[in-house]
Nucleic acid binder design. Structure first.
Length: 626
DNA sequence: TTTAGGG
DNA sequence: CCCTAAA
């Protein structure tokens, strides 16, 4: 009987999930959700870890992620650019092959053991132009290699790294090809070439390393970056990557993403293409900046007195202008650390990885470095101050105008756990007495959403999803981006930004506003409102299967949407029923067509009735048995 | 693991 | 969406 009823319910069978295109357009209408704040935490944590107590540490290795070969990477990059260009209504001029691009921070590591792979990657990357969009504040650019070398020497690849002062030629026996590395010649630039523990630099060096004082070939030890020009640099994490993350696979591409000076440009060739790409990879960058400028940061002074000091002696606090400065008053030293740079990152991802997983990998790497903890080293006039017990006065920091001589370095600190940054007891807002606004950036809601998605998505790179799930996934990457015309032009955009208002040195503790137990707590999943198409699919499935078989509904209608669990579907149905019952004026979010809501009510009524009948039957049979 | 419901 | 008792 029941079965018959079901069949008679009158649906033409299950409808295939909508096409990606159609759904995407629908998804784009989805408004930005407010609960994004929740998910900013991931970056909060990062930034707190960096800018906070400056007590970060750790032998943590950045997430090794998965291997990504150069081919894949380049494809990704190229696709991204094409996409971006299309978005800018200029599809015909899509010319991914940009020469003379300006590199500001790109170095390949593990050259020794990966020279073949590197060459391979670069060769395939020869048309890739990644500009200004990598990581947090890093820039990666490879210029077109093949053309420089000339058609007669197809076997040569050339990489321009900044201007052409230094040259490193790598001969790869495996390929009998060579790479020309042109290294930026800027004074404070560092180009590092590392080899894994097993390898050595000599392998590389067939290499002909010409010139450049700043070109350092390192063998085993990771580079310790020193702050230059009052900029805090993070140590390299290369050595912290587990060896397993350096498979000898020659298809691996290794990228060292490092921060760099904002004024470094070093175009060896005038760029013929001035088009500004907005690669999706920019997203993280902008998002992070948003964090820095966001109001969610709090500063927790260690001492109540200091808080008072900030308020009572506001003058001194406010004087701090853009430059790092010291104000000596009442035996207090005030300083402002203008910015923090993102650390150098080593990313390794398989060729088959998706862009999304690449993003996640970068994110994870950042998390691993920053979240792992660092400690601060203080350098005065290039000399590291090791004695923690010395007073600032004794050290000379208390004098005015020592700013330029003061630097900070971030070093691994295995003792300090990031959790210790959480001083939630006495927080106060950061933006308080800063004379200038911290940093202004255009709002980037969808960007935030985007990164959140990365953060919450599965750690493993998902295989390509089909139909529904697929478009949902990809939709995040194509979320409309806010206007960011200034991003490539403004010098402030080329650096990671943490503006810490003038404050007492010891009060330097930044914590996110929310509880940051991200390390040991599972992050809440991002809210992903159901699109009309998903609702349609859900309704269809429920019409057919009923309201008590969510697993089957899931399997049937949302099997490809990994992020929709049967609980989600059940919940959605619940809200759908509720939505259908309330007046349209009371409804929120993307409107669901009335037709669908009617079907919801119909189906709900029907299946409720079925359930009631079923119960009656059971009761009847039970009473009969008695 | 799934369902069912409250939060 | 989360949490969880109950099946």
């Amino acid at each position: 009987m029941v079965l018959q009823k079901r069949l008679d319910y009158g649906f033409n069978g299950y409808q295939v999930p909508p096409t990606p295109r159609a759904t995407r357009s629908a998804r784009r209408r989805v408004p930005f959700r407010k609960n994004v704040d929740d998910n900013q935490m991931c970056a909060f944590d990062l930034l707190a870890t960096v800018a906070g107590k400056l007590l970060l540490e750790g032998e943590n290795s950045p997430s090794s992620g998965n291997a990504l070969t150069g081919k894949e990477l380049c494809t990704i990059v190229k696709d991204s650019f094409k996409k971006e260009q299309k978005d800018e209504d200029n599809p015909s001029k899509a010319e991914p092959c940009d020469r003379g691009s300006c590199d500001r921070s790109f170095s390949f590591s593990e050259l020794a053991s990966h020279a073949p792979a590197l060459r391979h990657s670069l060769k395939e990357c020869s048309h890739a132009h990644i500009d200004d969009c990598w990581g947090l504040a890093s820039v990666i650019t490879t210029s077109d290699c093949s053309e420089k070398v000339g058609s007669a020497e197809k076997s040569k690849s050339k990489i321009q790294l900044g201007s052409s002062a230094s040259k490193l030629e790598v001969a790869s026996s495996g390929y009998q090809e060579s790479c020309d590395f042109t290294v930026g010649n800027e004074n404070k630039k560092q180009i590092k070439i590392e080899s894994p523990k097993t390898g050595n630099a000599i392998n590389v060096t067939k290499a002909d390393i010409c010139s450049s004082d700043d070109l350092a070939v390192r063998d085993r030890k990771p580079p310790i970056l020193v702050s230059v020009n009052n900029r805090v640099k993070l140590p390299s994490c290369i050595d912290q990557i587990p060896s397993r993350s350096f498979p000898a696979c020659r298809d691996d591409v290794k990228l060292v993403i490092r921060d760099d000076d904002e004024n470094s440009s070093g175009c060896s060739e005038p760029s013929t293409t001035t088009k500004t790409f907005r690669s999706p990879l920019c997203i993280g960058n902008r998002r992070i900046r948003k964090f820095f400028s966001s109001k969610y940061w709090k500063v927790t002074p260690k001492l109540k007195d200091e808080e008072h000091f900030n308020a009572a002696s506001g003058i001194a606090a406010c004087v701090a202008g853009q430059r790092t400065s010291f104000q000596s008053r009442d035996s207090h030293v005030k300083l402002r650390i203008k910015s923090f740079k993102v650390p150098e990152l080593v990313i390794e991802i398989p060729e088959s990885a998706t862009v999304g997983s690449l993003k996640r990998t970068v994110m994870d790497a950042v998390t691993a470095i920053l979240g792992g903890g660092l400690r601060v080293g203080v350098l005065l006039q290039g000399k590291k101050i090791r004695d923690d017990n010395k007073t600032l006065l004794q050290t000379g920091i208390s004098h005015n105008n020592k700013l330029d001589a003061l630097g900070f370095s971030l070093e691994p600190n295995p003792l300090q756990a990031p959790q210790s940054l959480c001083h939630e007891d006495r927080p106060f807002l950061l933006a308080c007495d800063t004379p200038q606004p911290l940093i202004r950036y255009p709002p980037a809601p969808s960007v935030v959403h985007n990164v959140v998605q990365q953060r919450t998505a599965d750690a493993l790179p998902d295989p390509p999803l089909s139909s529904l799930g697929n478009f949902i996934e990809s939709d995040h990457d194509s979320a409309p981006s806010p206007p960011d015309m200034s991003i490539a032009k403004s010098p402030t955009h080329s650096r990671a930004l943490v503006a810490v208002p003038a404050m007492n040195v010891e009060a330097l503790a930044v914590v996110p506003m929310r509880k940051s137990k991200r390390s040991d707590a599972v992050q809440r999943r991002i809210r992903r409102p159901f699109s009309v198409y998903e609702v349609e699919a859900l309704v269809q499935a429920v019409e057919k299967l009923g309201t008590g078989r969510w697993r089957e509904v899931k399997l049937r209608a949302f099997d490809n949407a990994k992020h929709r669990t049967y609980v989600d579907l059940k919940d959605k149905w619940k809200t759908l029923v509720h939505t259908a019952r309330i007046s349209p004026q009371q409804r929120r979010g993307e409107p669901v067509p009335q037709e669908l809501l009617d079907r919801v009510l119909t189906a709900h009524a029907y299946w409720s009735q079925q359930e009631a009948k079923q119960q009656l039957k059971q009761q009847h049979s039970e009473t009969c048995r008695l």
